[in-house]
Design a protein around this nucleic acid. Structure first.
Lengths: 214, 214
DNA sequence: AAGATTATTATTCATTTGTATAACAAGGAT
DNA sequence: ATCCTTGTTATACAAATGAATAATAATCTT
């Protein structure tokens, strides 16, 4: 019964931090915030619990880092989808909508992860700050795409109108994302994205559905 | 240091259960699920922690009852708003949208409460069942209103189209609710509801904005 | 190759938490 | 009035949790 000490490799700080953050996200997504303990995170990361405090001064700080990583990741994902397509603003806008209404964004686990973070925003100012920054960036991206789309359609619109459209577009995307993520299996493959593009077209008064038919 | 026993009143089962459920909702909304302990709930309800187990066999069961109460309350609120106005379907639909995009529905604390529950749906089948029932009811209400609105506008639409519109309407409401609840103070009084009615009009192709000008 | 550094593991600690049990008293029954 | 029922408080307990500290070994330095 003489248990030997666990063997291990020494890793660099950035590597471990990233790994711990990744494990934290995985835990929160699958277990929820309440059941995400430092021990559970450590197991998922393949280390012992004590190591967490070597890199993060508290569990709160780790969760904060995880949220920061999550927000950045979602933003990057969204921007990539736009950059991947042609420079036609209508096509870009359609790609933006589609990317946010397909896997892996639309996913029950991802929704659960998001909800776990949202819950903490009200009482944790640091979390709130990260959230605000991410949200504003998202809205700015949406408004830039809308502005460009209107310009490409030869329509002059006021900044106030762009703001309104940004709010509405953001809402339809978020709302469809919610529905798609919650109702497992109700939507056929690609259906949600199609409804999203149709709805965005109706809201903006621009036909985005045939935009990618070059 | 001879602490006297706390004086108390004996109350009926329904009274206590309701009070404990109410305290639970309040705790989750303000503290978050993680910091909502049986002791905290008891304090908020003005009783001692032991009493909770007298009425609920576990904390989970209490939280479940609280969620059930929450879902029912939200549904009733929404239906009341529709029943309060005239029987004109367009006006009813507008009222439905407005009710879901005004206080007290749009509120950061309410969002936090909702998020706390959503988080648990993935791992708790009982919570998932309550959620599904509430969601389906909500969607059915929306589709009924949409059907009636199309009929009143003299437009014949297929059930599939109604379904699509229901999804989209639901999405714009949820999305705007999210935005309004998260971004404290960005929206002027009534602005969110106005954007909602405008957006719903654009989505459905029905003018709901002037519907209440009798 | 030996020593120094520190990343990592192992162990310990004080609190908190859900739950279980025991003691008590408020209000009704007789 | 006295007894009885049971709603309610008070106390106890085991498990879990975040954090702190001690021990160890992997890798770098020289």
């Amino acid at each position: 019964m003489n248990a030997r000490r666990k063997s291990f490799r020494r890793e660099g700080e950035d590597f471990r931090r990233r790994e711990l953050v990744e494990a934290t996200l995985s835990c929160i997504a699958t277990l929820g915030m309440e059941r995400t303990t430092v021990r559970e995170i450590a197991i998922k990361a393949g280390v012992t619990a004590g190591l967490i405090r070597h890199y993060f001064s508290s569990k709160d700080e780790l969760v904060l880092a995880a949220y920061s990583q999550y927000v950045g990741q979602m933003a990057a994902q969204s921007r990539e989808a736009v950059d991947e397509v042609s420079s036609n603003p209508l096509i870009q806008l359609a790609a933006f909508v589609k990317a946010n209404l397909s896997a892996p964004v639309v996913d029950q686990t991802n929704l659960s992860l998001w909800a776990s973070f949202i819950e903490t925003i009200r009482t944790n100012p640091a979390m709130a700050a990260i959230h605000l920054e991410g949200y504003q960036g998202y809205r700015a991206d949406a408004e830039a795409l809308i502005s460009a789309a209107f310009a490409a359609s030869g329509r002059a619109v006021s900044p106030e109108h762009v703001r309104r459209m940004g709010i509405a577009l953001n809402a339809i995307i978020d709302g469809l994302w919610l529905e798609g993520s919650m109702s497992q299996g109700e939507f056929a493959e690609g259906e949600l994205a199609r409804i999203g593009v149709e709805s965005a077209s109706a809201l903006l008064g621009i036909d985005l559905q045939n935009a990618d038919m070059k």
